[in-house]
Amino acid sequence: MPDINMAKAINMALNEAMERDNRVVVMGEDVGPDEGVFRVTEGLHAKYGDKRVIDTPLAESGIVGTAIGMAIYGLRPVAEIQFSSFEYYAYHQIEMHAARFRNRTRGRLSVPMVLRCPSGGGIRAIEHHSESREAIYAHSPGLKVVMPSGPRSARALLHAAIQDPDPVIYYEPKALYRLFREDVPEAIETYPIGRAQVVQEGKDITLISYGATVRAAIDAAEILEDEDGLKPEIIDLLSIAPLDTDTIVNSVRKTGRAVVIHEGPRTCGIGSEVIARINEHAIEYLEAPIKRITGYDTPIPYFARERAYIPDADKIVAAVREVLSF
């Protein structure tokens, strides 16, 4: 039962997948001898060489477009976009081709490809290196979008993404890379894409989150238990598209209250979709309006102000108290 951080867990999954399946190739900027700017591809180039660990020219559309061609040819490319904001350079390849080849060829061609994208703030990065834009891709039909919340889910979700027959965008909340360690099982574990997890059972309110803010929700729940005697239920979505409506709805039917937490901007964010699904399937169970604790509808501020932007336990605690006092 190795106790490892999330960067190591992702690295472990890449190595395991490459060992098991020689169709798996890793590609991107600086993923070779440099082993990635976050060292996530550590040891892979030394072990698998130039052919399977490909340092590409600095061109995101080029990376995604050629990965699409490689996937169509029968490989399983795992392409790294060095920071999620650089994905915009490749948006047309993702939306117009990766997401659509299966559909427009009625299943004859498909793009089993993973895009790994370090995402979110919290590491005092320079401008354009801290965005959370998963909602854009959740809005693009034909893609799957997942985001782990720690070492164990990172490894299990990456295996699922690599094995998936369709293109998966795999966001790595980069604030978590080395934030904490967690036991991961010896044997390879796979979390099904499209399924959320109840990380803590409760009864008074449902906290729904994913990625880095799951940690904030867990911290908030501790404060609420200690100070208010409350037992919140916490859901880690893990999969943003498709979204696990059943797990969300079942929990809200039980607790009657919810707060949705994510780092991306509020308007048309994932929280909007979560609340719409609750409205469609469980509105009669609600005791109070649902609150959203999210990034604001501004760009994430340059690092001196980013702490004020990113959802934290205090904001969640305040939101829960407000919902309960409705």
């Binding site: 477009g65 040819y73 390849q93």
Partner: peptide
């Protein structure tokens, strides 16, 4: 054109 390049690389 990028798909072609990727196919060639594969």
């Amino acid at each position: 054109l990028l798909h072609a390049a990727g196919i060639g690389m594969a």
